[in-house]
Write a protein that binds this DNA or RNA. Structure first.
Lengths: 197, 197
DNA sequence: TGAATAATGTTCTAATTGGTACAAAATAAC
DNA sequence: GTTATTTTGTACCAATTAGAACATTATTCA
């Protein structure tokens, strides 16, 4: 945080990563060129390299930033005391995220999944991200089960799986231009199934 | 079908499209180069151009072939007389499709969705493909409703939406390396919800 | 047989790609 | 002020890209 020695930066690295993230989000990894990134960030290529390393490194930073930004509201939503409220808030947070900017969907799904088979670091991150989310849902359902909101003999994994699937599906469908109401019909159905309608 | 005038083709156009489809499926549109395509098809680039036009045209042919190949078993599955059997067969057909070749997922989701925002023809096709599938599901549910398998006052769209979402989600999760059993937990949950467990 | 036709493989090209070398510019320490 | 240090912008590079020119080869029709 102290004054650096050389010429000072004219840009904020966090904002730069966010700008890069937006470009990747819109066009995908392969279709995003360094020139596009440099322009979006407002830098020239050598500065990008000096600050973040190569294209892949910059993408991974954008990915990590996305996970941090996206999962926070989702996890927070799950803290609501009643299960139905928690799940409803969870899906609302998801829709806020996926419907933003005209429905750009999920950064992970749109940009990471297509390149996972060619970049091990990405595949690793996807697995981890999904496991984290699934586990958060499972923990929340377990709490609800202990509180008697879910029958004691109910196996929780199918419910987790249904919720995860719904979350994935609304991300894809948001990207395809569907309306929020249409997505809400799906999420409500999923919540009803878990909580009883 | 009659004998052509000039030098005869040494390849089968349909097989060529299928080979190209496989490459697109694995790497995505942008990351697939014409050289890769030519090698996979067993042709040189000029022959590809002569036969199919440019990269985009070849991709669209691959897409159309996919829709034809993929939707046939799905629609057929829905013809089973009992709703539960029909939906179970529907999801099994989906899993056969998405789990093939080590879990390559859905061609439309993997290759088309990421480029939809940059190619109108693709966006158009996606919409159409999804509408067709959703409609097939709706028609099948309507039949079941008329037969008394679904309560008469039940709105069908939330159910269609749930089934479509499940179908999308298993495609994504298959691509991410999940096991068939894991997906089956999700599809069974969805079927139970529609048919009653 | 020979012209017409349509496919083939080799070779090329203009543009774009991810990535760099290097000098100019801006700051802090001395 | 000078020097060390870091960032910036210009210019460049080798490789790859989508696509095309063109001569060659294999076939049918006359």
């Amino acid at each position: 945080m102290k004054a650096q020695r050389g010429r000072p930066r004219t840009f904020n690295p966090d904002e730069a990563v966010n700008s890069a993230q937006a470009v990747f989000w819109q066009h995908g990894y392969d279709a995003t060129s360094l020139n596009q990134l440099a322009e979006a960030v407002g830098l020239h290529k050598p500065s990008l390299y000096a600050a973040f390393g190569d294209k892949k490194a910059l993408y991974l930073k954008a990915y990590d930033a996305y996970v941090a930004q996206a999962t926070a509201p989702l996890k927070k939503a799950l803290t609501a005391p009643k299960l139905r409220d928690a799940l409803t808030a969870f899906f609302n947070a998801g829709m806020d995220l996926f419907m933003a900017d005209g429905g750009r969907g999920c950064f992970m799904l749109t940009t990471a999944v297509p390149i996972a088979s060619m970049m091990d670091e990405v595949a690793e991150r996807i697995k981890e991200t999904r496991a984290t989310l699934a586990n958060a849902l499972r923990v929340r359902l377990k709490t609800a089960q202990d509180a008697g909101e879910i029958k004691a003999e109910q196996d929780l994994w199918p419910l987790v799986s249904l919720l995860s699937s719904t979350h994935i599906a609304i991300a894809v469908r948001a990207r395809s231009g569907e309306s929020r109401e249409s997505l809400q019909a799906t999420t409500k159905a999923a919540v009803d199934m878990v909580c009883g309608s």
